[in-house]
């Protein structure tokens, strides 16, 4: 294990930026999001829950597939792609776990080549979550906020004046060697402090208001949950906006469209939301005609369909929907209504 003094981070960023597009949590008028770092940016490593997850770096909100051009009878196609190497620094454990969930979808056969290229060119540096918020419930999905899940190339822990640093993958080891001059060895005393920090996080978890949430307690199979009466009560306040799906680190549905410039154009994919009335619109119309069906789809996908396919829930308990939904129609309420809550002792 290594460490880097906080006051040397300002040396680390430009070094990383030499070879990578560097993304960091950056504050802009009180809102913190992962953005491209440039000299003078207001890096905010204290805010753990960024407004958006870093999903849009790995799986961009809009991504060009190919460009096309017509000349006479000749149609010219040009593949897009060619992502540059990038590095995301400061990803919370829940958000790292969400990337693993996206991997299951996009790297499963048939492999999504754009996504695969994006994953290969990316380096993920995690930071342990020292201060889980009251809207957090990652432990309900068996995520430990004190550790970086596999999938992170390097794990870091904030000890106040320094960041402890541990490589977790081959990429991470190479990078650690590259920055050897900025890193220092960790003392025994600091190792002990890390253990205290980890214990501190575990203690905090016990006191969080949503700690009793447990999706494993949800009873019934696909058909029973689908037919449950809860959807009728829950959906009514839904505004039909896409905030929950767009701030969600695990939502991954997309649409394919063309920009039609008459003789030339571009085929792209962009995020889509099951909350929208034209989601999965087909020639015959939309298979989900009411908001009730759309709301049900979103939660069925996360709690039933995805687990059926990949043996994991498609939620990491980051709590963004819990914090941001304008009408509080969030994952917590759905899990509770479905009986996924331990009785308090």
């Amino acid at each position: 294990m290594k460490k880097i003094a906080k006051d040397r981070l300002s040396l680390l960023w430009p070094r990383i930026a030499l070879n990578y597009q560097l993304f960091l949590p950056i504050a802009e008028e009180k809102v913190v999001n992962f953005s491209r770092w440039e000299e003078g940016a207001e890096v905010d490593l204290a805010t753990l829950k960024t407004a958006n997850s870093p999903k849009d770096i790995i799986f961009p909100q809009t991504e060009t597939y190919l460009n096309f051009k017509q000349e006479g009878k000749r149609l010219e196609l040009e593949m897009a792609g060619g992502r540059k190497d990038y590095l995301v620094f400061g990803v919370s454990p829940c958000d790292v776990a969400s990337i693993n969930l996206l991997d299951k979808v996009f790297l499963d056969e048939p492999v999504d080549q754009f996504y695969q290229e994006g994953r290969q060119k990316g380096v993920i540096i995690a930071r342990a979550c020292l201060n889980p918020a009251e809207t957090c419930f990652c432990s309900s999905f068996k995520i430990n906020p004190a550790l970086a899940p596999a999938g992170a190339d390097i794990a870091t822990w904030d000890l106040g004046d320094s960041l402890l640093w541990e490589a977790q993958s081959e990429k991470g080891k190479e990078l650690t060697a590259d920055f050897d001059d900025l890193l220092e060895e960790v003392s025994r005393e600091e190792q002990e402090r890390l253990e205290q920090v980890k214990t501190g996080i575990a203690d905090q978890l016990k006191d969080l208001p949503l700690v009793n949430l447990d999706p494993d307690l949800i009873e019934g199979g696909l058909n029973e949950i689908f037919a449950s009466e809860i959807w009728e009560h829950l959906y009514r306040r839904c505004l039909g906006c896409a905030m929950c799906t767009y701030v969600c680190p695990t939502c991954h549905c997309y649409d394919l469209k063309d920009y039609d410039g008459n003789k030339c154009g571009e085929r792209f994919r962009c995020w889509d939301s099951c909350m929208f009335s034209d989601f999965t619109m087909m020639a015959h119309g939309n298979p989900r005609t009411t908001q009730k069906e759309r709301v049900r789809q979103r939660f069925m996908h996360k709690l039933v369909y995805y687990p059926n396919n990949y043996q994991a829930y498609a939620c990491v308990g980051c709590g963004r929907c819990t914090e941001k939904c304008p009408v509080s129609l969030d994952m917590v309420k759905v899990i509770k209504k479905l009986g996924g809550e331990r009785n308090e002792l």
Partner: peptide, 12 residues
Amino acid sequence: SKCIRCLACRNI
């Protein structure tokens, strides 16, 4: 440029 086009502003 910060807009994520969730349309919450319109829908509320």
